[in-house]
Design a protein around this nucleic acid. Structure first.
Lengths: 195, 195, 195, 195
DNA sequence: AATGAATGAGACTTCATTCAT
DNA sequence: CATGAATGAAGTCTCATTCAT
């Protein structure tokens, strides 16, 4: 399905963990090999280059984020689907906090055009998903029509991003989902059209 | 004034430019020396270590951000001061787009405790400033009192952050101030109490 | 046995040779690599740091010195064993003159606590061995009892040390064993109890 | 007399102190300048090179050692003069412990032929002085005639050297003069002809 | 698949020394 | 006499990657 072997998946998981715990500067082939319990050249059996590992890692996160969006139920109101979407994002982060770090390591990918494009797409994905749901909400008359949707998406996605960033920097020391829900509900309160 | 020599200021400016254009991974003593037109050891006359260069750079940005907040006029309404504050931030970024990059390179500072703390403080500073102005706005009755201020600050600061980030990633290809004003006004429209 | 790979032994041997010929200041990773016919990074496959190379070298010499002492026969008189011990030390130095230099490079190890302790132990080892044999000799009634053993050990070990040092500084230009025997016999003549 | 300016003497004193406290590896122009409270280029007003500083330092110590020997009284017996000579050496070391370190940094001078020769001469000087006094003592019938004087000188000078070395390595933690006297007296007891 | 050994490039940093002022 | 600024050489060490086995 994903075109990845078991070993490749191992490598990606360990890479994500290293980035999460020590930062992307510590993601070296040496450290990767050590944590995997194999030698450095062995890694090159599974990926042609370090850049390929990072690309596969980003692609994996991309797919995962798409999958989360796809899981969001159809039947609900657009605002409920928005709530559902972010709940699932928070859920994934709680289960696998390491993924958060990768998204904030984007600067590290600047040198490699392919990686830069991929991580950019990853960031845009959440914004696009958010924008689409907001557009739907407006069409449904669930939210006020006198404000720019794109600005709303920027604030919501940006706010959540900032929240996750601080949660990560705090060492995941508090309940992201609770804080996240609070932000989402505040947002809804601001934009919702009273029925 | 800032306790920096001319040459130290040169070095910091060039460092910021390198980070902006190529990313922090390219900020090496070698590249720094090359862009300054001197040899690598010469840099060590002006800073004891690379870490000291980064620390001075962050401190400079910190001071600058504080100065911007201090310039915000007293007499206006809290919301106007909020507008003023972000306008000035956008203005600085337009004049010196390089500074944007540094704030998003935070991951790169993780390994150095001193730097990590400084960059964290830099991020918190904008959030704190925003929160304080929002608190004032509520006390003045300018904004609705039925929503959590901290959530509002998260959305506003996070939204602006995301906007700046995308502007930087796009190669500063569009008018940040205009887009930024739009986000701010949308935010104001959401929270403002009609008179 | 010693826990060292062949390549590690190579490196230690070359290191000892460099110290012997050019002094410890010339023992750089670069010179080591050049003499080994490999590149500098290759050395780090075999030792984690330069300090580790020096530590392994000192440990090797320590073991070697212990082994020499252990080879000294049991059956003889204490004075004969003393003669035997120093003969073997001189023999080793003739076979591997490089080892002499290391013992006189102690100052160079001052900055590294671990190395300083190891080289100090190496120096003390010969003094201790000498003292122990002298104590035995007195208990056997082989030497006069009216003089301080520790002073005797200091003179004997110090005299031999000085001799070796001068032999090394002269470029090993004369017969160390012969001169050494002369010193030992002079010492014995001074302390021996006539039968 | 010595052909040194005041400033040159300052530099030499500070150099000796650095060698004593931190080892010769720490004797850099930078550290020298810092401890002197001047800049690095300023040192080159007073000495043409670092090697010249070391040469002047060794020459100073050489002169000093000669002066000590010259102070030894003429009227006494040769053995008393020997006692006197070493007492004065110990006295100098107590007053200026730093000088001890220099003599044991000889390995560091290996690369520079001029320095190597100077430090070699310094070591030989004490041995020669000792040998000369022992020769005199034998001519006076003060010591036994059946042992090689040169071997005796080796043991005495070597023993004292080892003592000083250990005193230095212990951080000058005990009374060198007392221990030294003990060694000297033990030596005298061994070689003295009873009257 | 995996390993041991190696490599070229480059990282940060220190060294003794020079030169214009 | 002294300084500020700089330099060429060299230091230890890490990086991603390759290759023969």
């Amino acid at each position: 399905m994903t075109g990845l072997t078991d070993r490749q998946r191992d490598i990606i998981q360990v890479a994500i963990r290293i980035i999460s715990r020590k930062g992307i500067q510590e993601l070296t082939i040496r450290n990767l090999a050590r944590d995997l319990g194999i030698t450095e050249p062995a890694i090159y059996r599974h990926f042609q280059s370090k850049s390929d590992i990072l690309a596969a890692m980003l692609e994996y996160l991309h797919r995962d984020t798409i999958a989360i969006f796809d899981q969001v139920q159809d039947g609900e109101s657009a605002l409920d689907r928005l709530r559902d979407y972010f709940s699932r994002l928070f859920e994934r982060l709680r289960e696998n906090p390491a993924t958060a770090a990768v998204v904030f390591s984007d600067e590290a990918f600047m040198n490699d055009d392919r990686l830069a494009a991929t991580v950019r797409a990853l960031v845009e994905l959440t914004i696009d998903n958010t924008t689409n749901l907001l557009t739907l909400a407006r069409e449904n008359g669930e939210i006020r029509a006198d404000v720019d949707e794109y600005d709303l998406a920027t604030m919501l996605a940006g706010g959540v991003r900032l929240l996750v960033r601080r949660w990560h920097m705090s060492g995941n020391g508090w309940d992201l989902a609770a804080q996240g829900r609070s932000v989402i509900e505040t947002f809804v309160k601001l934009v919702e059209v009273p029925r």
